[in-house]
Amino acid sequence: MDVQLLQDSWWPMWRDAILGTIPLALISFALGLVLALGVALLRLSSRRLLSGIGRVYVSIIRGTPLLVQLFVIFYGLPTIGVTIDPWPSAVVAFSLNVGGYAAEVIRAAILSVPTGQWEAGYVVGMSHARTLRRIILPQAARVSVPPLSNTFISLVKDSSLASLILVTELFRKAQEIAASTTEFLLIYAEAAVIYWIICTVLSFGQDRIEKKLEQYV
């Protein structure tokens, strides 16, 4: 094993993980969650048109590969005059993707809150929107932490796909080093270890948040 190469590549890869992979995942996840809440509310709407829009959106996102979504945005849109840089392209694609998957999680979480909680909100004088915000969503948030954490961890790993649209992140750095040194096994295994460390830390964080939220219910 080439220990020197391992040492030389370790920090450059971490650097692109910290400057590329992690912020890409964080920003996309945050935007995706906002979108997901909106889509979940569309799907829960009693107006058929609105719930239909939500359902079609979720269906498209979940029924097509993330890599294809990335390529449509980065390589496809320029042919109709919409050119987006690699980084924002990746953010758009990942946010839309999270928006589809997390919408289903949030919808299920909202439905899991007993009807009596809605009624109690109405009885103390709250409107539908205020009951949703102050009574239902805080309880739904607790239920959705485990599945949403899984969505986030998946996103961290899936962000490696952004290397295919030229985004500087961990896996792209690994590809560059591997190509120039031809030490494919060593470098890709090293990249795998870094992803694994990040995801393990995230799992610990997930446990702690869940324990904290358990206090209330």
């Binding site: 009596g116 009624e119 109690a120 209330y216």
Partner: peptide, 24 residues
């Protein structure tokens, strides 16, 4: 209500003041 329907994520005091403070 039959099944009290208290807000589980709020304290007793917050349950009681939620309506007066937020709505009234």
């Amino acid at each position: 209500f039959q099944h009290h329907n208290l807000f589980p994520h709020k304290t007793v005091l917050q349950n009681v003041t939620e309506g007066p403070v937020q709505v009234r």
